[in-house]
Nucleic acid binder design. Structure first.
Length: 539
DNA sequence: ACACCTTTGAAGTCT
DNA sequence: AGACTTCAAAGGTGT
């Protein structure tokens, strides 16, 4: 029985270190039991070649004709659910499954059901929370799975659907609808040669994670599945994405001979467009267009972004506000109300995210995305602020977090009371396996100079100077000036030398509810009154 | 259609 | 080295 690592997956060794395994030896044993023969792998490779060849010459419509699109199966949604349940059950049994959700990913991570963090469908960033799975074609399911068209095999799953418990990494759910089941849920989408459920052609799927530099558009986020409530694509890809159905294989040296020229993991020009026109010199305009068509590999989400993604729905549900700006203010406050351990989860998650991202896109740099957005107007930010105006501007930002945590929209972490009296979690975070790895940027969890109550600053997490710059940001470049001398202060509310000489009395009065704060935030947004958040009456 | 707003953090550039 | 800038998500709002 071929081991995944041996049967074409030996290149995944590096990745194996990326995410810690649970009972690694046992898992490998299970893998070998679960994986079918190398013959299958060879067949898959063969079909892959055919797919590749076909794709280069045949149109999507031809592919569609060859594989008639099934009618929408009213039961497919239930099949989804059944499959997820099955997948989780297999995991519990130590078995493996595979999913089409992550063809661009050399392995899958599925939540470790044994993790104490796993509850309510939420996933822990704990290093032992994920089970690493080999991904697609190399992870050939057992014959029963392959042949049993009655049950929704992984290859039938829609990449967009995000089940709350799904261990699958999703990239986009924009097209998913329970009432319009994805065509590839049907067993028709089997490799004609192998009978193995194949990863559907891009025409049948929305695009995934394009390891291919030729992919067009945005890339679904590798850990998008960690945000079960919505499953929005972190790296979404517009229509007309990949031309190759197996972009993931670019990550696999064993397969690279088949597709390397097409799917180099490095940011190269896609052949799908460029190579066809190599005979003709490109005009600058054409070059520019192609440049624009290059995949937009988004930055990995940082800890706060991951937190926001997870919590936004809750906050929105608990509040009537819809404006993200206001929601984000709330989320920012809630973020700071989290304990060290809770934040550490997200820092760890973000760290893994970055690792994964760097593995998937070795040549990618955040710089690549510079200029992708239109330049913001902030260039003309407060150039001529008077000191008083500057102070006011700072006050707006600094005041918000000092509003005690609301009751109506509170998070469990902050439900004990206001942020002012929620002490910093003891140094457990440091001992926690989920604590950020001591990379150069993670030696200390960044503290928000603008918002974190002094009492939360952990002595073991010295304030990185970078955090000052980060916290101050371009919009509030002077905030950091008021932070440095605050370390010895202890009183939460007045612990920091916030230059609130003009701080209104309302700041110290009973705080408004979160909803009120949010409403005030909205007012602030609409009226651009720097202090409106704290000066407006709670009523 | 698209920039803005707003948050924190990472990573880039600039001085 | 430190300051500053950009981008990542989100979606209502404004131009």
């Amino acid at each position: 029985m071929p081991q995944l690592n041996g049967g074409g997956g030996d290149d995944l060794g590096a990745n194996d270190e990326l995410i810690s395994f649970k009972d690694e030896g046992e898992q490998e044993e299970k893998i070998s039991e679960n994986v079918s023969a190398e013959r299958d792998l060879a067949d898959v490779k063969s079909s892959l070649v055919n797919e590749s060849e076909n794709n280069s010459s045949s149109s999507d419509s031809e592919q569609t004709e060859r594989r008639p699109q099934p009618r929408p199966d009213p039961e497919s949604y239930e099949k989804h659910r059944e499959y997820f349940a099955e997948a989780l059950r297999r995991q519990q049994d130590g078995g493996f499954f595979k999913s089409p959700h992550y063809p661009g990913y050399p392995f899958l991570m599925i939540p470790d059901l044994t993790s104490p963090y796993l509850s309510n469908g939420s996933l822990s960033p704990s290093t032992r929370t994920y089970l690493q799975m080999k991904w697609p074609l190399l992870d050939v399911p057992g014959p029963a799975t392959l042949k049993d068209s009655r049950s929704p095999t992984p290859g039938h799953l829609h990449p967009h659907h995000v089940h709350p418990l799904t261990p699958l990494i999703t990239y986009s759910n924009e097209h998913f609808s329970p009432t319009t089941p994805p065509p590839h849920l049907s067993p028709e989408i089997l490799d004609p040669k192998t009978g193995i459920p194949r990863t559907p052609h891009p025409s049948e799927l929305s695009p995934y994670y394009p390891l291919s530099p030729g992919a067009v558009g945005q890339i679904p986020h590798p850990l998008g599945w960690l945000v079960p409530q919505q499953g929005q694509p972190m790296y979404s890809i517009p229509a007309g994405g990949f031309r190759h159905p197996y972009p993931a294989l670019a990550m696999n040296p064993s397969m690279s001979s088949l597709v390397s020229s097409r799917f180099s993991p490095h940011m190269q020009e896609p052949d799908s467009e460029s190579s066809r026109h190599t005979a003709h010199p490109k005009s600058p305009v054409a070059l520019k267009r192609e440049e624009e068509k290059k995949p937009h590999i988004k930055k990995p989400l940082n800890a706060f972004m991951l937190y926001m993604k997870e919590m936004r729905a809750k906050v929105v549900a608990e509040c009537t506000l819809k404006e993200s700006a206001a929601i984000n203010q709330i989320l920012g406050r809630k973020w700071h109300s989290l304990s060290r351990e809770e934040q550490a989860k997200y820092y760890e998650l973000a760290r893994k995210e970055r690792q994964l991202h760097s593995q998937l896109y070795p040549g990618w740099s955040a710089r690549d995305n510079y200029g992708k957005r239109k330049k913001r107007k902030r260039e003309n930010k407060q150039p001529d602020f008077t000191p008083e105006e500057s102070l006011m501007s700072q006050s707006k930002k600094l005041c918000l977090p000092y509003l005690p945590t609301e009751k109506t929209c509170d998070s469990p972490a902050s439900s004990h009371g206001s942020m002012l009296d929620s002490p910093a979690t003891p140094s457990a975070a440091l001992a926690s396996p989920a604590a950020p790895a001591p990379t150069h940027s993670e030696q200390a969890q960044p503290l928000s100079l603008t918002t974190r109550p002094e009492g939360r600053a952990h002595p073991h997490f010295p304030l990185p100077s970078k955090a000052a710059g980060s916290a101050s940001g371009p919009t509030h470049p002077s905030i950091s000036l008021h932070i440095g001398s605050s370390s010895s202060q202890t009183t939460p509310l007045l612990s920091r030398p916030i230059p609130f000489t003009s701080l209104p009395p309302s700041m110290l009065s009973p705080p408004p509810s979160l909803h009120q704060v949010a409403l005030q935030s909205r007012q602030a947004l609409l009226q651009s009154q720097p202090l409106s958040l704290v000066t407006k009456s709670a009523d």
